[in-house]
């Protein structure tokens, strides 16, 4: 018998992945949907928080700005297990947020991913908005834009960077395992996501199934990134076209 190292496992894993996908395995579907729901929600919430925060820091000058940028840059590299541990202690029955009864729920997983995703989205947004040509910012003002219009114009100019922020945020969320394992508990049918299932299967020595789920996870991330990249390219020509500026009459 020829020993192929881990390659035969990968080969079987690929075959098994196709089998699971095309057979519509209900457990895999459930795990995939939990992953999508948790990471999708965390990404959206992360964008809702991170984009305004990143843009505000990029566009305004205030005394603690440099300190805040350093904090965001540091938070971008937060170790997931540390976040998991912190939230576990916060959400435990004896913790200050224990009364919320969120531990081992999908909501706790969203919260954990949100803590990781929001700084990443904010950091990438900050960079994207800061990189908009200062002369364009000044031109928006020169054209008579009010502060709100100015922000909208600049954000539109930075739109590709903003979509990148969302893509990076989603990538970070969907691939995260440490934090959601700790606060989600990996409960089958409730908080078991693709990444936590992979860890469990690997620990059980079920490498073929683990690889199959890994391939599904990669495929999922790839499909969503393709969609977002397509959106990036499609919106490239869409600046200002889809909507009319709000009226801001000056009396």
């Amino acid at each position: 018998m020829i020993y192929l190292g881990g390659w035969e496992e990968i080969g079987f894993g690929l075959f098994r992945a196709l089998q699971l996908i095309f057979s519509g395995d209900p457990e895999v579907l459930r795990i995939t949907l939990i992953s999508l729901r948790v990471s999708g929600t965390a990404t959206l919430l992360g964008a809702a928080i991170g984009i305004p925060v990143g843009a505000s820091i990029a566009l305004r000058r205030f005394p603690a700005r440099t300190l805040l940028i350093s904090v965001i840059n540091t938070l971008m590299g937060l170790p997931p297990v540390v976040v998991g541990l912190f939230l576990y202690l916060m959400l435990s029955n004896f913790g200050p947020m224990g009364f919320l009864r969120l531990l081992y729920t999908p909501e706790a997983m969203v919260l954990a991913q949100l803590v990781l995703v929001a700084p990443i989205t904010a950091g990438v947004t900050l960079s994207a908005v800061s990189n908009v040509d200062a002369r364009l910012k000044e031109m928006a003002v020169s054209l008579g834009a009010d502060p709100l219009q100015e922000v909208r114009i600049i954000l539109r100019e930075a739109r590709l960077g903003l979509l990148t922020a969302v893509i990076v945020g989603f990538g970070s969320a969907i691939s995260e395992v440490g934090a959601i394992m700790m606060v989600g508990g990996n409960l089958l049918g409730y908080t078991r996501a693709l990444t936590t299932a992979i860890v469990l299967l690997t620990n059980q020595g079920a490498f073929t199934e683990a690889i199959a789920l890994g391939i599904i996870l990669l495929g999922l991330a790839f499909a969503i990134n393709i969609l977002l990249t397509y959106l990036q390219l499609r919106t490239k020509a869409g600046l200002f076209a889809a909507e009319t500026e709000r009226h801001h009459p000056v009396t």
Partner: peptide, 20 residues
């Protein structure tokens, strides 16, 4: 020229859109 990364129409129209 300080033009925004969009179409010619959108650039020329921007000041008018700002004015509502």
């Amino acid at each position: 020229p300080a033009l925004f990364d969009t179409t010619v129409f959108n650039n020329v129209a921007l000041g008018l859109k700002i004015r509502g």
